[in-house]
Amino acid sequence: MPDLLYVILPSLVAIVFIAFLIRMTGIAHLVVLETDEPVEKTIAEHFEGVGIDRIMRSADGTGALVYLKSTPGLVLVRALGDRMAVRTLGASTIKALSGKGASLGIALKDFTWPDMELCFADEGTRQTEENTIRKAINGTVKEQAHA
């Protein structure tokens, strides 16, 4: 047990110090989706040759819904530190949609993808996007009470 402490305690100190140093040096540039550009770049990397129909960015800059002109059709993008992660949306991948006010909660059947909330400009916009998603995935996703 003391041997384990010799490993764990200095390591925890090191983790905190490394994270602190990265922040202090400013070498990480966290992604905030203030424009469509980072979303377009990410889509181009993941779905080469597939055109973008339109992008609906979350008001808080944490994610975006992307409507593509061809397969896979509908994509969800989330900012993850200074990078982005992408998932295609479909009846088999969405666990639940929950809209309330201007925000739309999206839960995926994906262990590595925490539930996500996209905040739109107003309730009308959220309702439009929610309806579009439901239509795109044939309305097979169940309703979920908004947390």
Binding site: V16, I18, A19, I22, R23, G81, D82
Partner: peptide
């Protein structure tokens, strides 16, 4: 480098 990514790795 990104702090959360690095912290997760360590």
């Amino acid at each position: 480098y990104e702090s959360k990514d690095a912290a997760t790795s360590v």
